[in-house]
Design a protein around this nucleic acid. Sequence first.
DNA 1: GCAAAAGTGTTTTGTCTACACCCATGA
DNA 2: TCATGGGTGTAGACAAAACACTTTTGC
Lengths: 229, 229
Amino acid sequence: MAIDLYKKEDHLLLAVDCIIFGFDGSRLKALLVKRNLEPGLGKWSLMGGFVKKTESVKEAATRVLNLLTGLTDVYMEELGCFGNVNRDPGGRVVSIAFFALIKINDYSESLMKEHNSKWFELDHLPALIFDHGEMISQAKEKLKDKVSTHPAGFTLLPRKFTLQQLQGLYEAIYEKEMDKRNFTRRILELGILKKLEEKEKESSRKGAFLFVFEKTRYEKLSKKGFRII
Amino acid sequence: MAIDLYKKEDHLLLAVDCIIFGFDGSRLKALLVKRNLEPGLGKWSLMGGFVKKTESVKEAATRVLNLLTGLTDVYMEELGCFGNVNRDPGGRVVSIAFFALIKINDYSESLMKEHNSKWFELDHLPALIFDHGEMISQAKEKLKDKVSTHPAGFTLLPRKFTLQQLQGLYEAIYEKEMDKRNFTRRILELGILKKLEEKEKESSRKGAFLFVFEKTRYEKLSKKGFRII
DNA sequence: GCAAAAGTGTTTTGTCTACACCCATGA
DNA sequence: TCATGGGTGTAGACAAAACACTTTTGC
């Protein structure tokens, strides 16, 4: 962009920070990194970066997430703007927070070593720099909201999953136990899952049927929406 | 803020734009201004301004809203970030959009002349600069969401209002008619309105009782939340 | 006395919740 | 054969939706 009709206005730094959620089968986790620059060098933080002039804010978030995880096509949504004057002691930085949902196994051990990153259970987070703790706590709330009416949660599970895995995910997000029969009925009635022939045999002798989320079925119904919880 | 550890990073312009909603008794409206600078001079736009280094983003939005309306203590909420590279032909400007709910009569004729501003019905908006049309349409959706579970809508009505005015507001926001008896029952059962002795006699011979929203009653109930629609 | 809006209950329908036993299998 | 998780149905409670007539009063 060559022209700048607004030269005399304050120019400031704009950052993106990514709350990356994962699900290990029983608990919801967030991926944090050891910060590699001052201020806060060596402390735990969200993965973040500055928005460049040549990219959109969303593109910046995607780039930052890809840098850490190597992943593309990740479910990501804007959480909001964190714009207090002194939130970052290193300068006047406004941050746009995003939350992303990834399959925990898509993120390899080697990447964790490479980036000094680590999964943390949401109720055992370490001290975080700046307002990153607040970001995570807002993201948790927004996630609850989201998955109650949108099929976003599936992106935290493997492509093929059992109903009990899905229920475990919802229980982790809502931090409460649910009734197996009611949950099963509700989710199947939506008609957005396809039951496979295949069974998952790791966690029981009998084996549990695997399902996949069918996006096309969801799209037929999404106009009127749904409510899981 | 003296220090800037991030000097080498791109610095850019950050703006705020305010979607200001009002309700005239039967229709939801948005307050727009004729833009007084290039690019887009003379075109209709949302009220906006640049974020200064010395203020938070929220403070900037409050300042901008106050500049146009003279009002303080206005209900305002963040809508989201609009960060495409070429959204503003005048430069690389990222905008944080906010939506505000005001009482339409708090905004005087004289201010409208002073600022070249005007109320527009939401389904008869003029052409708007940049992505402001998209901002309004997202704000409309978010407003629906908000008033279904929070008592935000009251800030669009006079302090004293009739149940039919309140219902009219919800009908305008949801763009659908509702049943008077069901609406009345639901809203009264929440216990967040106080019925006054006083009647409003403008719109009928019989006169309709006036109510006020009781914040303290709402706060007692807000933990478990409520659902109007 | 009539036009115009205010105010008020009941029935039906659908949705949500609580709850317990048999099944299939591998060890 | 038994231990383990998988899979399934029903009854009762509650909430939401549909629906129409009487009241008040200024003209």
